[in-house]
Amino acid sequence: MNRYLPLVIVSLAILSFATLLLVIIPGMQIAKSGASPGLKPYTVAEARGRAVYVSMGCLYCHSQQPRDEAQAPDGERGWGRASVSGDYAYDTPHQLGTMRTGPDLMNIGDRLPSQGWQLTHLYQPRAIASWSIMPAYPYLFAHKAKADPGDVVVKLPPAYAPKTGVIVAKQDALDLVSYLQGMKHDYAPPTDGLRDDGYELMAAQQHNNDAAKASK
């Protein structure tokens, strides 16, 4: 252990090679592809809602990355087509998430477009699904004796409604719902969009096998 210099040089070379392949080249590829043509920038309300989404830590349970049909039945679940790099062009930081304790939300605005549904569900998920393990967010709502003009009243079944007065959505809840309603990536993906196509070959082979079997 007395030849330190070659050791340092070799380890630095290995590290910089990994950095080049895993960080720098992908970074350059992503920077080149830009925003998907169909993607709209966030509106002011959506951008505020996104900040609420980030601050609530939604990504710890909800991913934003539907997979290809070759990898998972996300399309059949109504979660939308597989996302590509350009779909996240306006997301800094991105909210890809790694956990799917709850469903993927990349196309929640397409799958559950109802503002009323989203507000009820945020106020008390158990009002809709008794088995839901999603936390309730009552502090995004206010209990009022009477709704003022312009207030959005949350629709609730008798079991969850207050005995008197109404529950109205605070601005944070309305912004968050605007953000969720805006989550629609239903345009065709750009041809040069980057994504993990690792299972496409397997799926294509499977498809050919099926076709051969069916023709017999």
Binding site: R81, A188, G193, R195, E200, L201
Partner: peptide, 15 residues
């Protein structure tokens, strides 16, 4: 690289 080509082709047909 074959998989990527198939994926690219699929996206091209969608657009």
């Amino acid at each position: 690289s074959y998989s990527t080509k198939i994926g690219d082709k699929e996206r091209a047909s969608m657009s």
